[in-house]
Amino acid sequence: MTTDTLRTLLTVLVFPGGLFAMALGLALKGVERRAIARLQRRVGPPLIQPFYDLIKLMRKRTLIPDTANAFVFLAVPVAGLASMAVAASMIPIPGFYEPSTGLGNLIVLFYLISIPAVSLMLAGSASGSPYGAIGFSREMAIVLAYEGPILLSLVAVALHAGAVTGQPILLSLTEIVRYQQEHGAFLFDPWMWPALLTYLCFIPANLGIAPFDIPEAESEVLEGPLVEYSGPPLGLMKLMSVTKSVVVLGLGIALFFPNGPAGLAGLFIFLAKCLVLVLAVSVLKAAVGRMRIDQAVLFYLKWPELLGFAGLALVIARF
């Protein structure tokens, strides 16, 4: 009993949640910044620049504005980071790590993934700054727009995996991964492509990547919800967003393309897939400008939503 608890704690705090996910997220962020610099033919920062930034922020002074609700202001970065550490421990690394069933299923994971967005909203509204309030309203609008498509995509995968394994619906990520490793990845199944495309559309909005980095637009609303943060709380917020990128990319890999060898090689294949996704995201970020919030919301309510419904309909029609 105690060893089980200890093991769960270790998976949440050290590997693959907590420390591992945070370090991986920071490293991927460094790769992203370097890749964007190279695409613009600049030299770019060193690969470990995000680690330097984090250490610097941890040593700076914390300022709390008079107008802020100090408790909420300081609590949300911790809550957001903690939710992401737990979520990261629920992402299977195919062939290397399987999350224990006690941690929860796809539904819990879906809710955990939306907590950072809630943290950002709370941070923006608790800071008492008008820029924070604008960031709050923008964040809420875009969350409402992309939650629908991502839910449709997850349900399509869960229904499909359930149908092929003879259950009504399959909500365990471990089982979904295991089925794909035995019978081929959903990536190569044309029936699943609408769901895959929906998931790919969800990634930039959730991670705040151009053209959907509207809530945290630094040139218009001074990084929106983060405007009043300084020092360690800002560092935790940045850490939360890089950990979120690991969770979201890892979930995409687990849902659509978890195939890989067993053992340590599986871990390296997983890292390589993360790297490919981050490079793709960097190309997108370097290539496009920022949309307006109304354009982004309309885009999400139209195309990814439509694709999501198409994916769900295909899965239902097939069985």
Binding site: P45, E218, V227
Partner: peptide, 19 residues
């Protein structure tokens, strides 16, 4: 512009004075 890149010194323009 690519020619004069301050990001290589680790710099980053930030939107908020508190950062």
């Amino acid at each position: 512009i690519p020619r004069y890149d301050v990001e290589r010194l680790g710099c980053q323009y930030c939107g908020s004075p508190k950062h």
